[in-house]
Design a protein around this nucleic acid. Sequence first.
DNA 1: CCTTAACTTCACAAATTTCTGAAAGAAGCG
DNA 2: CGCTTCTTTCAGAAATTTGTGAAGTTAAGG
Lengths: 166, 166
Amino acid sequence: MTESRTGTPERDPESVSRFVEHFAAQLVEAGMARMPSRVFAALLASDTGTLTSAELGEQLKISPAAVSGAVRYLAQVHMVSREREPGSRRERYRVHSDQWYEALTSREAVIKRWEEALREGVAGLGADTPAGRRLAETLAFFEFIEQDVAQMMERWRAHREQKYGR
Amino acid sequence: MTESRTGTPERDPESVSRFVEHFAAQLVEAGMARMPSRVFAALLASDTGTLTSAELGEQLKISPAAVSGAVRYLAQVHMVSREREPGSRRERYRVHSDQWYEALTSREAVIKRWEEALREGVAGLGADTPAGRRLAETLAFFEFIEQDVAQMMERWRAHREQKYGR
DNA sequence: CCTTAACTTCACAAATTTCTGAAAGAAGCG
DNA sequence: CGCTTCTTTCAGAAATTTGTGAAGTTAAGG
């Protein structure tokens, strides 16, 4: 990696942009809206893991309105958190790894609603019908997953600690 | 559950439809397109776990073209499989639980592409930069998940076997 | 208080996606 | 073969989603 004379590794905007757009495209393909995907990718690729609205707008060439909307969504699904710079009306947005891993894997709210729909389905179709049994088994699967994913995250934390040091 | 005089549990189309639309709505909210979601939910709620194109079209009040498109997508992501009724040009579509649990949890292709994008990002930004390190850790997380999810599915199969008998 | 910087909301134009009807394409069956 | 039944493809109308500029809101700092 090339370095500037200050000792700070240089950030090639070209490389950053290539990653941001490429990674965002994958998120879009997985069902996430375009702006939130791009904003999130930009945060991931930032040095400090935080960016202000203005920085996001400039880097991604989007309006303040678009930043606002994207960030509202990302905060809602706990993929980023918002911070107020003390003594300023400027806002900072941050990716915090642990937080977004959780958001990604558990999707708790989503799974909970799937389970709810399945429970109603079992009740409506009858637990003793073939379809009812299928729905019940699907429900059992989700319940299992939900519980097991929590354990998986613990294993991940242990794994990372061992790999990167605490 | 009420039964008809034939001994077959009755399927109240009203209940079926309520479930189908409700569950499909959750899938849509999770990022899946509307028609595939509805078709999939209808299959889940069917007695045999299979339906023909015509049945799907009639039940969901959609055109043959819409069925075709939805089913093409579902087959592509391995959530349903297509079968040819022997001695007929009629096609049947089937949900097979194991199959779609796999599809849902692993999303192998998706994760692989995420990993690829992250790897390029690490290379482009430099593994020795703060951002590069963040991407590398994210990559490590996905690699860990990918491997652990496979084990989770084995645990599920064991769990189910014990719960429902093989 | 007033000014001003920053974020948010809103209405709308543009782009995209979705679903349909119609036509074309397979494949069984005589 | 050719008739018939089913499925797929395709062009386009309709609906939805997206992103913007402009106006509105909030709060810091005189």
